[in-house]
Design a protein around this nucleic acid. Sequence first.
DNA 1: CCCGGTTTTTACGCCTTCTTGACGCCCCTG
DNA 2: CAGGGGCGTCAAGAAGGCGTAAAAACCGGG
Lengths: 224, 224
Amino acid sequence: MTTVLIVDDEPQILRALQINLHAHGYTVVPAPNGTAALLAAQTHAIDVVVLDLGLPDMDGLEVIAGLRGWTEVPIIVLTARHGSLDVVEALDAGADDYVTKPFGLDELLARLRAASRRAGAQAAEPLVETPEFTVDLANKRVTRRGEAVRMTPTEWNVLELLVRNPGRLVSQQQILSEVWGPAYAKETHYLRVYMAQLRRKLEADPGNPVHLLTEAGMGYRFSP
Amino acid sequence: MTTVLIVDDEPQILRALQINLHAHGYTVVPAPNGTAALLAAQTHAIDVVVLDLGLPDMDGLEVIAGLRGWTEVPIIVLTARHGSLDVVEALDAGADDYVTKPFGLDELLARLRAASRRAGAQAAEPLVETPEFTVDLANKRVTRRGEAVRMTPTEWNVLELLVRNPGRLVSQQQILSEVWGPAYAKETHYLRVYMAQLRRKLEADPGNPVHLLTEAGMGYRFSP
DNA sequence: CCCGGTTTTTACGCCTTCTTGACGCCCCTG
DNA sequence: CAGGGGCGTCAAGAAGGCGTAAAAACCGGG
């Protein structure tokens, strides 16, 4: 699980990023200003920093310097100023990458992945593992004892939903409406077919599943 | 059933979305301008808002502000302007997500599902614990001395109702009408059967229950 | 237009769960 | 002490959910 420290003084952007990054499997630590950011960086195990240069209490460059004094955690700078000197200065101060506002979430996600990948520390773990198989949420890859397992789009969607809620019981309606759409909430038979396929591909004994469990009448549960 | 408020001033788009979303199981409330949107949001039970920023009578940001004044319903913004400041401002104003035109229906559907999922996923609910067993409301999981205990749907519904009212007396009618439906308010025998099953699964001495107590003639009580 | 892969249907046997009935216990009341 | 109502227990039949396999429909690319 990757932990991201987000530093931005605009509460709504902070909130939006928090929601969206969390939805993509990141743990988010928010900070509204430079002081809170430097404090949070010391009290949490941060993997990547996303830093808006425009802060109320101190210059973004000072925050970078304050971090670089003791850590080499990747820093991605957010800047509204298009093509100004800010970027150069930020990179000089020790930032690793930058994104200019307005930015697409996809772009930020890509750079987050790139940053944590460069950090080399495979701390970038959108990986869910079981003794039998591992699911790579970021790359949409499933491997079973080292062998890649092919998934159809629907199979993947069902698996992803279950795997993103480990241990939690996911109701049939929830799976159906998220994967097929709300109109299909009653088509429980689809689920039986696809759960059977997933088990055949992932379980050692598909007839007696260990990780993809049925709770009769209620839903399904992924158990690591 | 998910209800979507769609705000767009172009009749063709409004109509196309209406048809397509309805085909995917959504109930659609259309609004051609900001005034109608704010009105409709108060007269219908809206689950998600899809908002085009370019409106004739008021700025899209004002619509967002008007909604955010009293509701936290997810807002997905439609914007034609690629890479402008609009998106940042919209997120700043309280929008949750955005889609740039032209967009694929699939993309919009995915974001609708994501939005309503996030709205549905409320804050984590607490564990209810007793010396004998623990009930995890969020994950629908019951454990007894570390061992998971399987519950049937009806068993779970009864248990959940009692556990959500710790220490409080819950009348037989209330349990019956909430779990089986109002028509079953007289079928007190069902309760005896299911209380016996719950006790057998959860109590150390099912004959002398400590946590699932009977108040003769009145109802049942969960005591932590 | 055909082909391969994917999704949706269909069919069927098994198993869980719900419902229902029978019975005995306890306590309260007459 | 007898009777009755409420409760707990047990068991069995009915109903519906589940797993599996395989065929049919669908879809995008060559």
